[in-house]
Simulated assay, not measured.
Amino acid sequence: MPFEIRDLSIHLGGTPVLHGVDFDLSSGGITGIIGANGSGKTTMLRAMAGLLPPETGSVLHQGQDIAAMAPRARARRIAMLPQSAAAPPGLTVRQLVARGRTPWMRPFLPMGPADRAAVDRALHAVGLEDLATRPVDSLSGGQRQRAWIALVLAQECDTILLDEPLNFLDLPHQTELVGLLRDLGKTRSVVMILHDLTIAARTCDQVLALREGRLVAIGPPDAVLAPVPLRETFGIGFECSALPDGKPVVLPAAL
């Protein structure tokens, strides 16, 4: 199990945000976290990354409590890409991706051959080798998001957490990135927050639904992305159907 979440409660500024959440995530594949704004999705992801201390309960990663791990050790296990990450002006794609090697490098020493090879592999995986010397702020939205994914890959963790990785991307770039994420899910455990439920249905191996900081459901997409659990999650009705080719479509019933 990459994650075992046990009776997890999180408070932010004294306000309860997560309430006794309890679930397991199996190894490998893609897990999507869904829920309305304010349901606790980002808080859940940050708790899984070890960035928020539990008020009660625990987060175990591969059987170990992440609260007891040193930040450097945790960063060798779990990589997290926050929403709307920004690079300093003028930073090149290669320089950005190289920052993913920080958990593995000795302080104040330059990158070694293994680090440079990891950066090269990450750039190749996202198809940005030809843009490695370009400033990140000169890239298109889709290219920029791929550069950040490459940083995460260069970190060489078995578990990757992504906060709304498709946010602000147009449809062609969303399609491109979804294909990349599917490839990542073949060799790693990927947990990501998604708003598009049809993409979640077509991309995820399992889906976790939250409402007001409480777990509503967790399971395969066809079980969670169904009318009853979706109404319990969002408070509105949904139509869940399939196209002639069998691909699922999930839409609010009012549309």
Rank of each mutant, 00 (worst) to 15 (best):
L243M: 14
P221S: 04
E239Y: 06
I236D: 08
R146T: 10
P244Q: 06
P172N: 09
V207L: 01
Q145Y: 02
L215S: 15
L161A: 02
I236H: 07
L194I: 04
R202S: 12
L215Y: 14
F238V: 14
V152E: 10
G213N: 02
T175G: 15
A242C: 11
L162G: 08
C240W: 05
W148M: 07
G235F: 00
D183I: 15
H173P: 15
Q206W: 12
L161D: 03
L153C: 04
E156P: 06
L177M: 13
T159H: 00
P229F: 11
A200P: 00
P244C: 10
V207N: 04
L162W: 04
R214P: 06
D222K: 13
I160Y: 15
R144M: 11
R144E: 10
L161I: 06
W148R: 15
R146S: 15
P165T: 14
A209Y: 00
G141M: 05
L197Y: 00
I199A: 11
E176W: 15
F168M: 13
V178C: 05
V152T: 09
E239D: 14
Q143H: 14
I160A: 02
I149A: 07
A226C: 06
Q155N: 08
S189M: 15
G237A: 12
V191Q: 04
L243V: 06
V190Y: 12
I199E: 05
L169N: 09
R144S: 10
T175H: 09
Q143T: 03
I193E: 03
I218V: 14
G179H: 11
G142A: 08
R182D: 11
N167V: 05
T198V: 05
R144N: 09
L194R: 06
A217V: 10
R202V: 13
D170M: 00
V207K: 01
L210F: 07
T159A: 02
E156T: 03
A200M: 00
I199G: 13
I149S: 11
L208P: 11
A242H: 13
R214L: 06
R231Y: 08
T187C: 12
A223Y: 07
I199M: 08
A200Y: 02
L181T: 01
D245L: 02
V228C: 12
H195N: 10
C157G: 02
V224S: 01
N167C: 09
P165C: 15
R188C: 08
A147Y: 10
V191M: 13
